[in-house]
Amino acid sequence: MGELVDGKGESGRAVLGRTLKFLREKAGKSLGQLADETGYDKSYLSRLESGERLSKVTVMEDLDAYYKAGDLLVSHWRSVRLDAFKDQYKRFMGLEATARVMWVFTPAVPGLLQTEDFTREVLSGGQTTPDADELVEEQVAARLGRQYLLRQKPEPDVRIIMDEVALRRPAARAETWHDQLLHLEAVATWRNVTLQVLPFSAGVHHHMTGSLTLLWQKDGSAVAYKEGNGCSQLDEDPDEVLRRRLSYDRLRDLALSPSDSLAFIRGVLKELRS
């Protein structure tokens, strides 16, 4: 099926759309039949084939299973989702996708752990253009797609420290916030994820205005990615990465233990319910 993925001069989204159309026609299905048999809207499937929309990864998983195509569509989708991000972030995401160890600090609920409804609410606030809804859905799909790496094999070893402020700024809809807290509670029990809360009682610290991510590859190489105040920086220099790692260690020393952090999240859930 090499002819499906070469696509010289085409965007990744166009190649994926062409592949979707090829598989449908090879199966002898019309768009209407495909919609009936998969449960997806006909117009939505049409826009995927024309390259107008970026789907969620779960749609590609469903269609891979429907066409018995292995992970062909998911593999295409992993590359296509990068189209939604800026070049430097694409470089970071490429490293993130292959990292064996990941350490993250964030003053907000990290994208890797956001539910779909919470992601949509976060991304909707700054959109004012006529095509805002379309843009938001593209960004939602791209952000949720990053979560795929948490369940790939082999599973990366992930440590995430969240500032308490992330748990004190709820979503506008109580149901959305409740579901987000439930998801954080569940993630805190995953075997490959260590989740910690940095409490207000720890006082001021040196990462209050942005997030920090450290990634280690299988060969031991590491990078640091700092983001905040509308700027981002990817550091690959060993001395700079070491400096960032030491700053992360200081945050970890101030954070609640994993078990106390889980209890803290459950406490916030209890407050919400009452």
Rank of each mutant, 00 (worst) to 15 (best):
S211R: 02
Q233D: 10
M208E: 07
L167Q: 11
V187N: 00
V223C: 04
A166T: 05
I161L: 06
V158T: 06
L150Y: 06
N192Y: 05
S211P: 00
P199R: 14
L212K: 05
S201L: 11
G230E: 11
V193G: 08
K226W: 04
L195K: 08
S211Y: 00
S232C: 06
R243Y: 14
A174N: 02
S232V: 03
G203T: 09
E185S: 15
W190S: 04
L150M: 15
R169T: 03
G220H: 09
K226E: 08
G203S: 03
E236D: 13
D219W: 05
T209W: 04
V204M: 14
A186K: 13
E240D: 13
L215R: 09
T213Y: 09
K218E: 15
G228L: 13
A202P: 00
D235W: 01
C231P: 00
M162V: 12
H205Q: 03
T189N: 06
T176W: 01
K226M: 11
G210T: 10
D157A: 10
V204Q: 13
I161P: 02
L234A: 03
A224V: 09
D163F: 11
H178E: 00
E155T: 12
E227F: 01
F200P: 12
P238H: 08
L149F: 07
S201Q: 14
E227C: 03
G210K: 02
H207P: 00
G220R: 11
E240Q: 15
L198V: 03
H205Y: 09
R243L: 13
V223D: 06
N192V: 06
Q233T: 12
H207V: 07
R151G: 04
W177N: 05
H205D: 06
L182Y: 07
Q180R: 11
Q233L: 15
I160A: 12
G230Q: 10
T209G: 08
E185G: 05
L181D: 02
C231S: 10
T176C: 00
S232I: 01
D239A: 15
W216C: 08
L242G: 07
R159F: 05
M162N: 03
E155K: 15
E227M: 08
W177Y: 13
E236Q: 13
V197L: 14
H207I: 04
A202N: 04
T194E: 13
D157Q: 14
I161W: 03
A186E: 15
E227R: 01
R173P: 00
V223N: 02
D157N: 10
V241H: 09
L182C: 05
F200T: 06
G220F: 07
F200I: 04
R191D: 14
M208F: 09
H178K: 03
V187C: 00
R191P: 11
L242C: 12
A222H: 04
A166D: 03
